[in-house]
Amino acid sequence: MTSRRKQLIHALLKGIETGDPESVKVVNQSQYIQHNPQTHEGDEGLAALFKRLSKTSPRVNIVRIFADADFVFAHTEYDFSSQRVGFEMFRFEGDQTVEHWDNIQSRQGPNSAGHSMVDGIAEVSDLDKTESNRELVQSFVNEVLISRQLNKLSHYIDIDHYIEHNPKLSSLSSVHVALSESDIDDRFSIQYDKSHRILAEGNFVLSACEGYYQGQHSSFYDLFRLESGKIIEHWDTRETIHPKSEWKNNNGKF
């Protein structure tokens, strides 16, 4: 079932390139809940979107794809009229997906350490450590990102081998500085307020959080790779959450 669902989502995302309406049949139109505020609900909305996008000769690369119970989540590259990087998250019932979330931003970088937003290890391992890795990341999100106990960074992160893929950061010290910075109103420039979901498969864990970036209401998706009980690699995307008056559905970002 897990492998089959990954294949279906892979085909769905690649359908963006061709506009193939068959690819969206994995979507259960009668139950589908769409959380991308700029997309209409149901597979008819996706079919129309894919048809429109296909005219721009888009390219889609699924860099990493994972499964966690009834969820499939993917780390993706998009080349439409501009290059973007995103995370896609789908919830399944049987062989069809009934709910979708995503978080996409313009591609930047590489960072000063030479790492892009998507390069690095993609192979899933340590399946027996899925739950312990999930718990570690949940604690990291709660204690470090939300509660800002920055003195605990080294408790969760392998400081000697850490690899950072954020285009504006390059090391653990730069992460510490970024989380400590304030804006002109003395508010933290990066503020994680709420953890909405933690998904995991083996050595990879994805967190979806809500907060503020430079005063703008934002969604933060962070993908972590763990090794020997520590975070050793990190990728992320951030997206501004626009006012509800601009949404094409009423389901909310999360």
Rank of each mutant, 00 (worst) to 15 (best):
I9H: 05
I9L: 08
I9W: 02
I9K: 02
H10F: 15
L13G: 00
G15N: 08
I16Q: 00
E17A: 01
E17Q: 04
E17W: 00
T18L: 02
T18C: 06
G19K: 06
G19A: 04
G19F: 07
P21W: 07
V24C: 10
V26A: 07
N28R: 11
N28I: 06
N28T: 10
Q29W: 14
Q31I: 06
Q31A: 11
Q31N: 11
Y32H: 11
I33P: 02
Q34N: 06
H35S: 09
H35L: 05
H35R: 05
H35E: 08
N36V: 03
P37G: 04
P37N: 01
G42P: 09
G42R: 09
D43N: 14
E44F: 09
E44L: 12
E44Y: 10
G45E: 07
G45D: 08
A47V: 07
A48V: 05
A48I: 05
R52A: 09
R52L: 09
L53F: 07
L53A: 07
S54N: 06
S54K: 02
K55T: 13
S57A: 13
P58A: 08
P58I: 02
R59A: 13
R59Y: 13
V60D: 01
I62F: 02
V63E: 14
I65Q: 10
F66L: 11
F66W: 03
F66S: 08
F66N: 08
F66V: 07
D68S: 11
D68Y: 04
A69C: 15
A69R: 13
V72I: 14
F73R: 00
F73C: 03
A74F: 07
A74G: 11
A74Q: 05
H75C: 10
T76C: 14
T76P: 02
E77D: 15
E77A: 15
D79N: 12
F80G: 05
S82A: 14
R84K: 12
V85I: 12
V85N: 04
G86A: 11
